[in-house]
């Protein structure tokens, strides 16, 4: 919702990088250091109005308020799960909405943010995919998912695994990562942020060159024909080529790459899959993250039973692939992986 009395035609300051703020203050005839002061108010303090930027001269605040608004927006709805997970619904303009999941866990709290309203990628197992594509989020709308929830300061990790394919909205995603990690922004360590993709190779390459954040790739099966049935993107960017591209980058240091693997009963959970996965990932410092499948309406897929997920993990581990099983969180509020959608 817009700040009181500020129509949405005013440009939001929230979501601007230091470079953009510097250009703005120059244009407005304000001293150069004002850009850093504004960034500080936007990304480090809990104010919500330009008028509250008290170290700016009153005249400067008035001038800014004529053309700009602060630009954050509060969630319009929250659902709480029995396990502590919370799902927030945010407006994204024109009766469009996005979802964000806050997932607390012992010593950490992870925020799962959306990067698009809906998605164009059409994965067979995903609720967001069923919703179709309604638009890209701006960097401000992405970062707002962190700054406008009450648990902002408890969040230790951010994952771009909500609605949308981040590398289909690369420019705004990179900008949001800059705001989250820059010393003038939120100064989060890039090691606490993971961006998840289905493997849009050109976007992934640019991300790996420009950002230090971790990468997660939705793999789901190493076999071409099977992956084409599950994920149409395989026809444009086959997963073998995605892995080949990843091998050109350095993951031996602190930056990590992981492969997400939703387990479908009788489909991608056989010994052949273990063998092929081990071959595909051989020698790559990485982790495979096995995920339980939570069926969506009308899906022809069912999830692998827990016992077989454990066996699959053990078989991959025995082949030298570091493999973990992700805990399902927020199931009762449809906040688990692949369940986010604002489709009614």
């Amino acid at each position: 919702m817009p700040e009181t009395g500020k129509p949405n035609v005013l440009k939001p300051l929230f979501g601007m990088t230091l470079e953009e703020l510097s250009a703005l203050v120059k244009e407005e005839g304000l001293p150069g250091f004002t850009a850093r002061q504004i960034a500080d108010w936007l990304y480090r303090k809990e104010i919500r109005e330009i008028s509250e930027m008290t170290n700016l001269p009153v005249r400067a605040r008035e001038m800014l308020s004529e053309k700009y608004r602060f630009g954050t927006s509060e969630p319009v709805k929250v659902s709480a799960s029995a396990d502590g997970t919370r799902k927030y619904l945010f407006g994204a303009g024109n009766m469009k909405f996005i979802e964000t999941a806050y997932i607390p866990d012992r010593d950490r709290a992870t925020l799962c943010v959306s990067s698009q309203v809906g998605c164009k990628m059409g994965c067979l197992f995903c609720m967001t995919g069923k919703q179709g594509f309604q638009g890209n989020l701006t960097a401000g709308e992405i970062v707002n998912q962190l700054c406008s929830i009450p648990e902002w300061h408890q969040v230790t990790n951010i994952v771009y695994m909500g609605m949308g394919e981040p590398f289909d909205n690369l420019e705004q995603v990179l900008k949001s990562l800059e705001i989250l990690t820059a010393p003038w922004g939120m100064a989060m360590s890039p090691r606490r942020i993971t961006v998840s993709t289905i493997g849009i190779i050109p976007g992934m390459r640019e991300f790996l060159e420009k950002s230090q954040c971790h990468l997660a790739v939705s793999l789901h099966t190493p076999f071409d024909a099977e992956r084409r049935n599950l994920m149409p993107v395989q026809n444009v960017y086959p997963v073998q080529e995605v892995v080949d591209e990843i091998r050109r980058h350095d993951f031996s240091g602190q930056r990590r790459v992981s492969f997400e693997y939703i387990m479908f009963d009788g489909l991608n959970d056989t010994p052949d899959h273990v063998k092929e996965l081990a071959r595909m990932l051989h020698g790559l410092p990485c982790r495979v993250n096995l995920i339980r499948f939570h069926p969506i309406p009308g899906t022809p897929l069912t999830g692998t039973p827990d016992q077989r997920i454990t066996e699959f993990r053990d078989a991959l581990t025995a082949k030298g692939v570091f493999t973990t099983i992700r805990a399902s969180r927020g199931l009762d509020i449809q906040a688990a992986c692949g369940l986010l959608s604002t489709m009614n």
Binding site: K130, R228, N229, P232, V233, N235, G298, L301
Partner: peptide, 20 residues
Amino acid sequence: RDRLISRGVPFKNIDAEIFF
């Protein structure tokens, strides 16, 4: 794809290219 599946076409018989 949803309509084909609901009419009994196995998802393994459906392949797609999306103009994303």
